[in-house]
């Protein structure tokens, strides 16, 4: 059936639908999808990331708050002033139960004396927990936040657009937007060191052995042995992030 202009609407509708169908079909063709380059090694030839699963432990009973770890991290990783990849908190709990938490204003000057009378006071060093189910990876819109096969949560600074969603998402305050590179930044567990058999800068710098780094895949590593011997806790386990940083000697008040 056609109208005065000789145009058959039913036919034109069918034609349009056909065109759409063909178009949709075209979408499923492999249009120029370049396959992943299999020769491109993602690790140095000597380092096999399948063989390791890195973890970290913090012994808060040993920390003296000297901040050698913060200084080492800043020098090692060129951390911009005003931001931290690792830090140390000081908790002071007074007799009536009030909790006071603070960080040193300046790691070159250390913690200052405070005129208070706590019944309990201790230091808690903190780093990125390199969670197994990290929220930061979940919320990155462009796939710039990822976890390597050896368990380290990293940022792809080439793809990061600097939206800051991961910074908001981290429940532990480990991430920040680097004011120089304008991308997300965080503790990398000194990936450039641990893949060469060295220890992270903070672990090496600690004079008291309050920071322990090791291979969770190796049952005989110092870290694995420590975790079998001591009682430890995770930070904010209720978040369901499965952090891989284990804290020994944590008190109830530690957030």
């Amino acid at each position: 059936m056609s109208d005065d202009t000789g145009h058959d609407p039913k036919k034109s509708r069918r034609d349009m639908l056909k065109a759409i169908g063909v178009g949709a079909g075209l979408l499923l063709l492999p249009i120029g999808r370049v396959k992943a380059d299999k020769d491109d090694k993602t690790a140095d030839p000597d380092y096999d990331w399948e063989k390791h699963y890195w973890g970290y432990a913090v012994d808060t009973t040993k920390c003296i708050g000297c901040l050698a770890c913060m200084r080492a991290c800043r020098a090692e990783n060129d951390v911009p002033a005003g931001y931290v990849r690792t830090w140390v908190e000081r908790y002071s709990i007074s007799a009536d139960g009030t909790v006071r938490v603070d960080c040193a204003k300046d790691e070159m000057k250390g913690f200052e004396e405070v005129k208070d009378e706590p019944v309990k006071s201790f230091f808690v060093p903190k780093i990125c927990n390199h969670c197994e189910k990290s929220v930061c990876n979940q919320v990155c819109p462009v796939g710039a936040a990822y976890r390597t096969k050896d368990g380290v949560v990293l940022v792809d600074t080439q793809r990061c657009i600097g939206c800051g969603y991961c910074v908001q998402a981290c429940p532990y305050g480990s991430r920040f937007i680097n004011p120089t590179t304008h991308t997300a930044d965080k503790c990398t567990l000194c990936y450039h060191r641990i893949t060469k058999g060295m220890q992270p800068a903070c672990v090496q710098a600690c004079p008291k052995g309050a920071r322990i780094f090791g291979d969770l895949a190796d049952k005989k590593s110092p870290l694995s042995i420590l975790l079998r011997q001591r009682r430890y806790r995770l930070l904010k386990p209720e978040m369901g992030t499965h952090p891989k940083c284990y804290y020994i000697g944590l008190d109830r008040e530690v957030i």
Binding site: A36, D40, K41, T42, A43, Y146, T148, D156, Y191
Partner: peptide
């Protein structure tokens, strides 16, 4: 869901 060569860059 990330660039496969990114860990190498991180190293």
């Amino acid at each position: 869901h990330y660039r496969g060569t990114a860990p190498k860059d991180a190293q």
